[in-house]
């Protein structure tokens, strides 16, 4: 694996291998020295053209636990505001000796361009590009599902037979896209729930079942329901009449939460809009995996950084 740009590039075996490796990485936190020397002397650059404290901290922490040197570059207050392009910024960072670049960018395809335009040699890890993909989020979601479902017997397992509903703003959600490809590659059955106005074109060709009404999806025996954040920053038109109506029709209200099966997980990529897409009753319950997802995110990012940056060629032995 030279880059991680999209979960579409991951087949079942590769995905399971990443999840297994992330389990090994998770054990690092239980040790006396909570660091591994795998990326000693390597430089990981976090290149964030879009605000994201959580994802940035998660990647920073993952790279540091692998002993890498970490340089974080946030677009605000940088040369980007003076008009420096993605190419110039990337080449500057590559000239400083970056071995891996973690990139978040508001434009879909930015990570792909960075990896394949021939500007740089470093491994590129997509940390979210526009409304396209956010592969490590999908990997940590898959990890969380697998860990909760199989407990101590999760190693080597895929998600065959699990039924997951992803609910909300599918149109703008890179988390949803990455999850669709990854969860289906791992054998899960994926249901997407969104108001018509937030269903992307071409979704009919995706390997999923689409529902317009949340209650239809909730009548199925779901193993997990993943609530997406309503991304007000990407909402440049009126996609639903009001926040209150959205919450009533597509939010995981306390009443809907009470109807879920006793083992149905409640997932959310964070940060949550409480009272909009998710109620506090659901978010704070023992079936909520929100905090697990944050913890697991570090392990997944350690696994991916290891695979991309530890060896000489990036190809598995």
């Amino acid at each position: 694996m030279k880059h991680l740009l999209s979960t579409r590039d991951l087949d079942r075996a590769t995905a399971v291998r990443i999840l297994d490796l992330a389990e090994d990485m998770a054990h690092t936190a239980d040790r006396e020295v909570k660091k591994l020397p795998a990326l000693r002397g390597r430089t990981v650059v976090n290149l964030f053209f879009e605000d994201s404290t959580r994802t940035r901290l998660s990647f920073e922490s993952a790279a540091k636990r692998l002993s890498a040197d970490v340089i974080t570059f946030s677009a605000k207050g940088s040369s980007v505001s003076k008009g420096e392009s993605l190419k110039d910024t990337a080449q500057t960072l590559a000239a400083m000796g970056a071995d891996a670049i973690v990139v978040r960018h508001p434009d879909s395809g930015a990570a792909h361009q960075l990896a394949h335009a021939g500007w740089i040699d470093a491994a590129v890890l997509n940390a979210g590009d526009g409304t396209h993909e956010h592969p490590t989020q999908a990997l940590l979601d898959a990890y969380t599902l697998r860990a909760r479902h199989f407990g101590a017997h999760s190693r080597g397992r895929d998600l065959a037979g699990l039924r997951v509903a992803i609910v909300g703003d599918i149109l703008h959600s890179r988390v949803a896209r990455s999850n669709v490809w990854l969860l289906t590659a791992l054998g899960a059955e994926v249901h997407l729930v969104a108001p018509r106005t937030l269903q992307p074109h071409g979704m009919q060709s995706w390997p999923v079942t689409v529902h317009e009404h949340l209650d239809d999806a909730l009548s199925l025996a779901l193993d997990a329901v993943m609530m997406l954040r309503i991304q007000t920053e990407r909402m440049h038109a009126a996609f639903f009449p009001s926040a209150r109506e959205y919450a009533r029709e597509w939010g995981l209200t306390a009443e809907r939460f009470a109807r879920l099966g006793p083992d149905t997980m409640v997932m959310h990529p964070g940060p949550m809009n409480r009272g909009l897409e998710i109620s506090s009753a659901a978010a704070d319950s023992s079936r909520s995996t929100v905090l697990d997802q944050v913890t697991n995110g570090v392990s997944i990012r350690m696994a991916v950084l290891y695979l991309l940056a530890a060896g000489s060629s990036g190809e598995p032995a």
């Binding site: 490796l21 390597r42 990036g314």
Partner: peptide, 13 residues
């Protein structure tokens, strides 16, 4: 030789 060879998959500890 970690950085000199292709990526090796670790085994559990």
């Amino acid at each position: 030789d970690l950085a000199r060879s292709a990526t090796r998959m670790p085994a559990p500890t």
